[in-house]
Simulated assay, not measured.
Amino acid sequence: KELQRRVNALFDIGQGVTHKFETDTDTAYTKTVPTGAKLMSVKSIGGHSEAIDGEIISAGTTEIVEQGKNLFDKSGKENSDAYTIPMYYNGRYKGLKIPCENGDYIISTKHKSGYVSGMSKSVYVFDSEIRTDNNITGLIIEHLTGYGYNVDKTGIISVKHGYIILSVFSGESTSTDRKSFFDLCDIQIEKSPTATAYAPFHRNEYPIPETIKALSGYGIEGNVTDYEAKTYTQNNTIDGTAIKALDTPIVTDISTLIPDDFLRNIEVEAGGSVIFKNSNDNYHIPVPSEEEYIVKLSEVGGTT
């Protein structure tokens, strides 16, 4: 699919086209922002119902989260009191649990100008297991002896338990020591086959208005909020045991319930994600939706 996008982009570039609209109509809880995407508009979001533990659970989207490709938020990570999980060297070094979905991640570091090897004695490890024995495991970013420091590194870490452990012992292991490291070393965690150029962490949340969530049947399979046409169509209802089609669909004008620019032209970052959180978010239920992206073809085609 990505290869075909590139071929098409190169053809369009040859015709003098620089940007193009692309749509994504997949049903998903989380969608990846495509290469070259700059702006996104959410055209519609549907409901979805599943039988879970003998009960029909419906997913009414409560907020849309636009997440950048870098999943590592360094803010507050220098706080010494946050590192409480015993990791290795008989628990001498402590860890900080960072929640994330299971899967493979690329972790990369980039040392800035001004970072020197003598500024700190560092053990700096990302792991997916809690260890209390004498072994260092995981992806070692910094270590004074034997592992190298002041060296940019890239590595893969496989998450199996819903979190990454960040373990740090830097200098005297104070907040000041850690802050100096974070200020001079950019760290990126991304769910990507290969490491890409560093970008700061960012996350934007777009709550669905209460007036939309209160519409009859919101979140039930087959019911659709069309943010482009500014309508809500209720096709189905539910009795608890089954989904039932209405004799006649009910169409509601929602133009007075949302701002004109709601979910329009949202800035996005290629490799980032769009998450459709819902009222039963523990289940991460996928929902049907349609997004329209404005993409820069030179980035899709690999000519920039």
Rank of each mutant, 00 (worst) to 15 (best):
A195G: 08
S170W: 09
S167L: 02
F181P: 08
K191R: 15
S167G: 06
S192R: 15
S180N: 13
R178M: 10
F181K: 08
C185K: 14
V168E: 07
C185Y: 07
S173G: 02
T174H: 00
L184Q: 07
P193I: 08
A197L: 13
A195Y: 01
K191W: 09
I187M: 15
Q188K: 14
C185H: 11
T194F: 01
R178K: 13
D186T: 04
A195E: 09
Y163G: 11
L166P: 02
K179W: 03
Y198P: 08
S192C: 15
T176W: 11
S192N: 12
S167P: 07
I189Y: 08
I164C: 12
Y163F: 15
I165F: 05
Y198M: 08
I164L: 15
D183V: 05
F181A: 00
F181H: 10
T176V: 11
T176Q: 06
Y163P: 10
S173W: 01
E190W: 12
Y198G: 09
S173N: 13
P193T: 10
K191A: 07
F169N: 08
K191T: 11
Y163W: 13
T196K: 09
I187H: 11
I165K: 01
D177K: 04
G162C: 03
Q188H: 12
I165M: 06
T194W: 00
D177E: 02
L184I: 05
F181Y: 13
F169Q: 09
I187W: 08
T174E: 00
T176K: 06
G171L: 07
I164Q: 13
L184Y: 12
F169D: 05
K179G: 00
I189E: 10
E172Y: 00
Y198H: 11
I164W: 05
D177V: 03
I187V: 14
K179E: 02
L166R: 00
I164S: 14
R178V: 07
G162M: 06
S175Q: 06
A197G: 13
Y163I: 05
G162T: 02
F181E: 03
S175R: 01
S180W: 15
V168A: 02
K191E: 11
L184H: 14
